[in-house]
Write a protein that binds this DNA or RNA. Structure first.
Length: 182
DNA sequence: CTATCGATTGTCT
DNA sequence: GACAATCGATAGA
């Protein structure tokens, strides 16, 4: 079982929910996606809300591509593009491959602190502007379906000031690698 | 444990 | 000039 571009050519809410449990890696470093958030067109908290700009152009490109942006001037965050103007933010990963590389890049040893947050993932997987607008189906990325190991939960999104009530954050129930509890 | 605050820079008003 | 899809350190309960 695997995925294709049509998997992402859907409502970002459905994609965000379905992505939890997938395995993802960048140049051999990664693990299981355990937390995601959906951002939609006409969503006041989405970078695409005010229309296409130089920064968010990837969000308006083809589905199944990456959208990487710099958060607070210092954290690179990774999204998977869905239908035009929508994307799924990858918020937490359960480390599985390349633990040593992650520990070196993050300067932390505990597995729970390596990828539990969008900025931490960016640092652990060495994501930069160079990873923006690339197809998820080809190196350095690798994304593959993985049988769900437990139930999916949902809740409100994190770190935003608008549309804060939307329950568009999804996660693996009970996972110790979440960025926050639900 | 929770709460607060500084860091740092691209982007938009 | 203001602000941001965050993190880590620190102070206090």
């Amino acid at each position: 079982m695997t995925w294709d571009a049509s998997f992402f050519a859907r409502n970002a809410i459905d994609v965000a929910s379905d992505l939890v449990g997938y395995e993802f890696e960048v140049s051999g470093v990664g693990g299981v996606i355990v937390e995601t958030e959906a951002y939609l067109p006409n969503d006041a908290a989405s970078h695409s809300f005010a229309g296409a700009t130089k920064r968010n152009q990837s969000m308006f490109g083809p589905p199944a591509y990456s959208y990487v942006y710099l958060s607070y001037g210092l954290h690179w965050c990774l999204n998977f593009v869905c239908l035009p103007g929508s994307a799924v933010l990858i918020r937490a990963i359960e480390p599985k491959w390349g633990l040593e590389a992650m520990q070196t890049r993050r300067r932390v040893m505990e597995a729970k602190a390596l990828c539990s947050g969008p900025g931490r993932i960016g640092q652990a997987l060495a994501i930069t502007r160079a990873h923006d607008g690339l197809p998820l189906s080809r190196p350095p990325f690798r994304l593959r379906f993985c049988e769900k190991s437990s139930a999916i939960t949902s809740g409100t999104r994190v770190g935003i000031t608008r549309a804060i009530e939307q329950p568009w954050r999804f996660g693996l129930k009970g996972s110790p690698f979440l960025s926050r509890k639900f």
